[in-house]
């Protein structure tokens, strides 16, 4: 083995000497021990590698990355949300078909009031004055805008904080509803949140999908909240969010 062959192998060895017992490097390491020129070269290589290791280890991830990862994972629990299991998906598909084709998305009833939560969301998306402010809402917008965030598995919502800090608040059936506008993959969406106890009938049998007038809406619920998300990109785009 000449110097160049030895250097080729030794460059692949880690600087703390963790590969001392690696048979593939043993010959090169033995040569470096016997040969002072090669030994000095290896010492310099390792010193340089250690500096690089230390420099890279000092680069800190953004402060909010860990929280965003965990929040995104909680929105997609290990496995799948209960209603994303195949049996429920089949049932949900039939529910969606019934809603979209059978009933359609009738936005307003006889008295001019939205007929259900999905219709309320669609109507507001199409005709409402959107806005809102506050750090809590801003954090939710960031979370909702991230591709890894799945809406259907639960979101880390602090309803009271949203309401208190400037999130746009509407009223449906006499109950407060928060609206959070967000962007995903260049498209605009509107998420409507209400306390689950206030709207017990929303998506009680599973997620509901509906389309009408250029609006598509998905409504669902979990233990804490009733949700509706509305957009203009069609039902498939909404399903990808969930």
């Amino acid at each position: 083995m000449n110097h160049e062959e030895a250097k080729f192998l030794l460059r692949a060895g880690r600087p703390h000497g963790q590969d001392a017992d690696d048979p593939a490097l043993a010959g090169a390491l033995a040569l470096a021990e016997r040969d002072p020129v090669l030994g000095a070269w290896l010492a310099r290589e390792r010193a340089f590698d250690l500096v690089m290791t230390e420099k890279l280890a000092a680069i800190a991830p953004p402060a909010d990355l860990r929280a965003a990862i965990l929040a995104g994972a909680r929105a997609t629990p290990a496995g799948r949300a209960w209603w994303r299991q195949p049996a429920w998906l089949a049932l949900a598909a039939s529910v969606a078909l019934l809603l979209a084709v059978g009933a359609g998305l009738r936005l307003r009833g006889g008295a001019g009031a939205p007929v259900n939560f999905a219709a309320f969301a669609a109507d507001d998306m199409l005709h409402g004055q959107h806005g809102g402010a506050g750090e809590v809402m801003g954090a939710m917008q960031v979370l909702l805008g991230q591709p890894a965030t799945r809406l259907g598995g639960g979101l880390p919502v602090d309803f009271a904080a949203l309401e208190a800090t400037g999130c746009r608040t509407l009223s449906f059936d006499g109950h407060p509803v928060m609206e959070i506008c967000f962007q995903r993959a260049g498209a605009q969406y509107h998420l409507y949140l209400a306390r689950a106890g206030d709207l017990p009938a929303v998506a009680a049998a599973g997620p509901e999908y509906a389309e009408a007038g250029g609006a598509a809406v998905a409504a669902w619920r979990d233990e804490k909240f009733a949700y509706a998300v509305a957009g203009t990109g069609g039902l498939d785009a909404l399903k990808r969010l969930l």
């Binding site: 990355l65 995104g72 890894a148």
Partner: peptide, 13 residues
């Protein structure tokens, strides 16, 4: 950040 999150999302699923 997106890549890191996406990686853990794929792990979660």
């Amino acid at each position: 950040c997106d890549l890191t999150q996406q990686t853990f999302y794929i792990w979660a699923t």
